[in-house]
Simulated scan of single mutants.
Amino acid sequence: MDDIVRQALAKWPNVPACTGWLMLDRRGNWRMRDEAAQASGSPGEPIRHEALLGFINRNYDADECGQWFFQNGPQRVYVELGYTPWVVRLSVDANGVLALHDQAGGVFAPAAAFVDEDGGILFADCSTPARIAVLHDHDLQIFSDHATLADDSMSGEFRWNEQLVLPLQTVRRHEVATRFGFVPSPASMV
């Protein structure tokens, strides 16, 4: 968390939280949701300002109930999640070495791989509790190049570089939040 945010929290500790105004979409884009977007169920407008995106990413965290938020100075802004709290991009370098990075640019080391009923690929890392991230759909080809899938495409294995083979486990999309302990829409809990 940024020092300026810590200072604002100390100076104004009782600023009410807000919900519905910020969304992390299925592709890892931060979106601002005004009242019209919230009323219509729209994902809102993508945030493109690099400094603001960096500020959001540095001050993004979860509370003890699994509700993800952006600490905007003294105000906690709870985040609507398009799927998971993390979205990862998969890349491969010229030497064939795979890398995963989350929407904030951090390294994501996979410990488990999942596929949902829609063909979405998810990874869990080895942190406690495990972070769960959905793979950006633009990277499905890279994933397929390093996976062996069964005929039903719901099982198989993913080869993570030369050090690890991850069995592909099935998970139902509606079970992901409960299984990995996060709240996709914190508005009802705040």
Rank of each mutant, 00 (worst) to 15 (best):
A10S: 12
N14V: 09
N14T: 13
A17T: 15
T19Q: 02
G20L: 07
W21T: 15
L22A: 07
M23D: 03
R26D: 15
R26F: 04
R27P: 05
R33I: 13
A36Y: 09
Q38T: 14
Q38V: 15
Q38G: 05
A39G: 15
A39C: 12
E45D: 14
E50Q: 14
L53W: 10
G54A: 11
R58T: 09
R58P: 10
D61Q: 12
D61G: 08
D63I: 11
D63E: 11
E64H: 03
C65G: 09
G66A: 04
G66Y: 04
W68F: 14
W68R: 06
F69H: 14
F69D: 12
G73A: 01
Q75D: 14
Y78I: 12
L81W: 03
P85G: 06
W86K: 07
A94G: 10
A94H: 06
N95E: 15
L98Q: 13
P110Q: 03
V115E: 02
G119T: 09
G119W: 06
G119Q: 13
G120C: 12
G120S: 15
I121P: 07
I121H: 05
T128F: 02
T128A: 03
P129A: 00
P129F: 01
R131A: 08
R131N: 15
V134C: 04
L135F: 03
H136V: 06
L140K: 11
Q141R: 09
S144I: 12
S144H: 15
L149E: 11
D151N: 13
D152G: 08
D152C: 04
D152M: 08
M154S: 11
G156N: 05
E162S: 07
Q163W: 06
V165H: 02
L166E: 05
L168P: 10
Q169T: 06
V171C: 01
R172V: 11
H174C: 12
E175G: 00
V176H: 02
T178K: 02
M189W: 10
